[in-house]
Nucleic acid binder design. Structure first.
Lengths: 188, 188
DNA sequence: TAGCCTAGAGAACGATCGTTCTCCCCGCAA
DNA sequence: TTGCGGGGAGAACGATCGTTCTCTAGGCTA
């Protein structure tokens, strides 16, 4: 009927393929042709759905931010207290660090790669981190902790991701968790 | 006399220029021509001193590792106890985070950009982090702390660098310092 | 069946980049 | 003064990449 037939499945396929490749190799090490192959879609279609690589990257990042939230929510499913919600973050990290394709935080990686030359990328990274920071702040406040304590815990989460990526080991999740427990114990 | 006249000043100029540009924009966003211009050296000379961009990057990273050590040593100059040496790390970070051109840890950035496609880059990043980790471990051991405590402090240092880079604020240095003091206080 | 719209495959294009090559000039030895 | 070897500037080359264009085949409408 209309020439703009855009099967929603195609959009998802492309996003999933781009996400996989960008994350695994770095954005600049992945050509649009590789995305096309991985997605099993023609180049024409690809550019019909996303007008440029930058637009595609933007959507990939937006989706990763949602995926992060979803993973966090899933790991917090059994949590009842604020403390449990807080510590569930580290369960989430632990599971993630153990996955075969783990290669650090997409936002940190993309910021490192393109943040200096792309204000949009820098803004998306900042927004994601800021949102997570507020999430932690809310939980810590419920436990009677200060904003500074929340910031400290966020640093541990950040450090765990970077360290797990570079060392290839999942233990930073447990270490960051233990440190958080120590910090929480010092609230009183 | 010999055709291999390689003024040692030129080598330093090139390294300094490459370091500045790679760090400011990301390795892949800097062409060899830009390095050449920044260094004020002919392309021929550049390739006489460093046979390839990869070789140049390798040397830049090696030098950054030394610069890190030197900065740490300088910030620790007045420290006498192990505790002071440990806390001096955060003075070092604070000064660094406040510098205009701060853009995170070179090793983390380069790992994010090239670690997946360049085993050498990944290895250099790992080696640097591992060396710093051992440094912290030594200091913490002198204070009667465990290796796990050292790892926790290292996570704070890592997290502070990433967070300062993305937010553009120097406060993570202070926050990581405060968290470290809390963790140290819990040793007993 | 005839005509047309669409989509796919991939060639083509223009830009960039790492690396090498050419050309020209300068300073030095005889 | 006359060659000559080395160095500088930048053109050139080959590869890659983002993006667009062309060509062809196929399916739907009348």
């Amino acid at each position: 009927m209309t020439g703009l037939t855009t099967d929603p499945g195609i959009r998802d396929q492309v996003l999933a393929a781009a996400d996989r490749l960008f994350y695994a190799r770095g954005v600049q090490n992945v050509g649009m042709d590789a995305v096309r192959s991985e997605a099993g879609v023609s180049l024409k279609r690809l550019y019909q759905v996303f007008p440029s690589k930058n637009a595609l990257l933007g959507e990939v990042l937006r989706r990763r931010s949602e995926t992060w939230d979803a993973g966090l929510a899933e790991a917090s499913a059994g949590a009842t207290t604020s403390r449990e919600h807080l510590l569930a973050i580290f369960d989430f990290l632990d599971g993630w660090f153990r996955s075969d394709d783990f290669r650090g935080c997409v936002f940190v990686n993309t910021f490192a790669e393109l943040g200096a030359v792309s204000p949009e990328v820098a803004a998306v990274a900042r927004a994601h981190k800021s949102r997570f920071h507020r999430y932690v702040e809310g939980l810590v406040a419920e436990l009677g902790g200060t904003a500074d304590l929340a910031a400290q815990i966020a640093l541990l989460v950040e450090g765990a991701q970077v360290t797990a990526a570079i060392t290839g080991s999942p233990v930073p999740a447990r270490q960051a968790c233990a440190a958080t427990e120590t910090l929480l114990a010092a609230i009183g």
